[in-house]
Structure formats: C-alpha cells, structure tokens
Write a protein that binds this DNA or RNA. Structure first.
Lengths: 244, 244
DNA sequence: CGTAATCTTGAGTCCAATCAACCAATGTGG
DNA sequence: CCACATTGGTTGATTGGACTCAAGATTACG
C-alpha cells in the first residue's frame, strides 16, 4: 500500500534503496479514517506531515455564506504539508472524501530525511512544483472554461494522476466522490454539474456510477476539454535535468 | 531598490548581515523591461531566477479560444521560480504589466545560497508556502464569490502585499494595470469589472485612476469582501515557530 | 427494510457575457 | 498646432447560461 508514495516520488528523482527504505519506514504505521472527516482544520497550527495511502481526500476552504470551495484533491501517494512545521497556520482544511488509509510521518523522520536524503528532497521539491502547476491549471479552469470543459478537464487530470500511481485499470478507476464534491471543486451547482456529466455521458466520453469513473475516449475528452497533460509534470524526469 | 526582496524575506526569517549581503549582490545588476512583454514563456525550458525590483508583473496562461487567465500577480520583492532549474517546462508565461525593473540571479549564486544560507532557504520555503496560500484563496475567490467581492478581495490582497514591502503611502499605492487585467485575474469581462469597480467607488471604498489605487476604508472593504489577511502569512514570523 | 443521501429532470429567474456605441485621454505625424 | 488613431473606460440593450426551487427516482446504508 505504502508504495504509492515511492512510486510517485520516483517520477521525479532516482531513489536509492536507502531512500526507499526510509520512506517505507516513515509510512509504516497507518490508520484508517472514515469518509467525510476533517483531518486538520483551517486555522489550526500546522504540525503533522500526512501521506495518503488509499482513498480520496481534499483541501477545502469555507467562504462567506458557508459555501465550501475545494481547492485540491488528494490522491494516494500524495504527501501533505511536508513543510508544515515551519509555517504557523493552516489556510485550509484537509479532509477525507471517501474512507481513507493515512500515515502520519513522525517529525523526527521528516527532519532526518530533509537532512540526509537529498534525492528525496529534490523529488519533493519537484512534486510541490507540480502541485503549483495543478493549481494554476485549476485557476485557468475556473476563470476561462465553461461547465462541460471544467468537468472534463478535472476528470482528465484525475485520470492522469491516478495513472501515475498505477491505479487505473482498463480506463477505469475508483472515484468515490459525489457530484456535489465535483461542484464545489469547479465552482458550480451540483445540478449544473449533473447536466454536464450527462452531456459527457451522452457523447460516450465517460461513464460514472457507483464511485467508478471510466474514460471511454481519453484523446477526445482531452481535446474538447482543452487538456494538455504536460502541466502535471508526470512524465519521468529522471536524468532529464541537470542537478543544481 | 533591491531591498524589497530583503524586506520581504525578513518577514519570514531573521537574516544575518551575510545573508543580506549575498542577496544584495545577487540582485545588484538589474535591467529595465518595458510594459507588456513576456519575460519567459509557457513551454520554455525553465532557466533563470528572476527578482522583480519595481513595477508589476503577472503569470498567465492561455486557454482555448485565446482567453488569457492571470493566475498570479508579481509585486516588487517577489522572487520568481527559485527552483526553476530543476523542472523542465514552464506551465505559464511570466510577463510584465507595467514597465519593470528586474534582476536575473546568476545560477552560481542561487546554488551557493541554497547550500550555504539556510535562513534564506527557510525564508524562501515560507515565502513559497505563502504563495500557495494565495493561490488557494484565488481559487476560493473564483469559485465562491460574486463580482464585487472578487474585485474587493483582490484589491485587499494587493494592498497588504504592497504594504509588506513598504509601498503604500496614506492608503494609496501605484497599481498601473488595466481593468482588463483585473478581469483576466478574476474570471470576468472587463465590462463587468468596470461596473463592480464603480460600485466600490460609489460606496466610498476605493479610488482607482491613473494607475493609482486608493483604499478609503480598508476594514469595511475587507468585511464586505470576506477578506481575512491571515492567509498572506505576512505578519512577522521570526521566532514564532520552532526550527526543523 | 426503511430512511436518508444522492441523482435526475423540469420550469422559472436572474445574472453576467456579448454586442455595440460613445467618451476621454494620450500619442503621432503632417 | 491640429487631425487622426489608439487605448482604456463607461454605458445601454440583448441574450444565453447558470442558479434556484421543487419534485420524483434511484441508490446507499444502518
């Protein structure tokens, strides 16, 4: 289970067996968390470093009038808030959407890694730049695209991110979230999301039922959603850049 | 001029005189760049590390049908792409909006800083987390707020960020950007932005003319825009957190 | 098996984009 | 110095898309 993290970081840097060992150790102890629970809340002091091992989580903020805005999805292998200890307050809430398996990394191991495992640090830096890219793309999504494109684009992103940690099988993957969640992530009403999904279904681009998402025609979905996978930075980068 | 960078980083960490000296050296040579020019383009290989010394820039993406989405504003003292050398492609374009003064940091100094000036590195890490917070807030802005709130919220953010580098005088600061720019940053039409600005003006909240923005009643503007300054992480943090 | 969520569909309303002028300020060349 | 072009801002009329409200169907779950 814990190998999602390793698989993810290996995209960005060549990890030694010592690197992998410490990552395995750091994520050895995990605990189950039920769906729809806040793991750490906006305003809390940042403390822990989490790794999501299975399930789907999100980061959200509450704006005026109680509206919930999802600002990111957290997928298996995602490492949350590696720099948590150095900033004082969470600006958002980290929560589960489905039942999850999470691991809390002990502070001691975190600082040990930061000091003695430069390749991991490098991979983490790349990973956080990829996160930034994703956020830019989300902004472009909300600011510049219409409803079906927003949904399509988001689904493409999730597809590729799940693919990168080997969780896609025959174009399908588990996506146990509601249309309300998709609405809050794309700045729309669930009613409106529903209609767009039905449109995508009727055009034989996706299937979405019982928490499973199927992408029927990735190329076409990407095209109509203005999706360019480059921004995810998920193509292997090992050896393609010079060390600093 | 170059002290905007130092002033900014000092928010996050206590810099020694050696730290400041190397920052001053790194930003010693600057060059003027005229308004509305792309500094580095989406798709380009990342190479240089920029510091904006004066003027206003932005990061933008072009989505389908040529629409421009501004995903961030770059203010004096902002350090662009410190990790540029380790990722291969720019996911967005960095451009000037007004005439700017920019400094390109030599690679050699960058790596020297990363290796020998831990407090600067720490400040940079904090700074990039603050950037992430801003992006979350922008997502909430686009996803959850109406037009006057979006504009008001953005203006509050710019006010506080300019304040942090001492560029606000008597509630006023230079903001040489167009309503079209504001539109592209808030996912609206310039026509719609115009009406919202007029609304804010008529409620005696702001003045905005000839590239100068005046905030007439910050508290009230913050209240009606659902703005909480905490997310900017601009309150001095020196000594408030334990080192890792 | 029953209750609560979630999804689906329809109808009506409203807000924001679009289209289209027009104005003011600035700059340019003759 | 003035005619003209350009850019940014302002205003109104129109239209379409997204939200709201509401009710029924389906699914999930204790």
């Amino acid at each position: 289970m814990s190998d999602a993290l390793i698989r993810r970081l290996e995209i960005f840097a060549e990890l030694s067996s010592a690197d992998k060992a410490i990552l395995a150790e750091a994520t050895a102890t995990s605990r189950p968390i039920s769906a729809r629970t806040d793991v750490s809340r906006e305003g809390d002091a940042r403390r822990d470093v989490f790794v999501l091992l299975s399930g789907i989580g999100c980061r959200y903020k509450i704006v005026a009038e109680g509206r919930r805005c999802i600002v990111a999805f957290v997928l298996p292998g995602d490492l949350c808030d590696i720099h948590a200890p150095i900033l004082n307050r969470m600006d958002h809430t980290l929560a589960t959407l489905s039942p999850c398996e999470m691991s809390v990394m002990p502070r001691s191991i975190v600082s040990h890694i930061l000091e003695h495992h430069p390749m991991i640090v490098r991979a983490l830096a790349c990973s956080s730049m990829a996160t930034e890219s994703i956020q830019h793309e989300w902004l472009a999504n909300l600011g510049g695209r219409n409803s079906p494109m927003r949904i399509g684009h988001l689904l493409c992103e999730l597809y590729h991110r799940m693919e990168a940690v080997d969780l896609v099988e025959r174009g399908q993957f588990s996506l146990p979230i509601t249309q309300i969640d998709l609405a809050d992530a794309t700045g729309q009403t669930s009613v409106h999301v529903n209609r767009s999904i039905q449109r995508l279904r009727s055009e034989r681009l996706i299937t979405f039922a019982q928490g499973m998402l199927g992408i029927l025609d990735l190329r076409r979905l990407e095209r109509i959603s203005d999706f360019q996978p480059d921004y995810l930075q998920l193509s292997r980068q090992v050896g393609t850049t010079s060390p600093d």
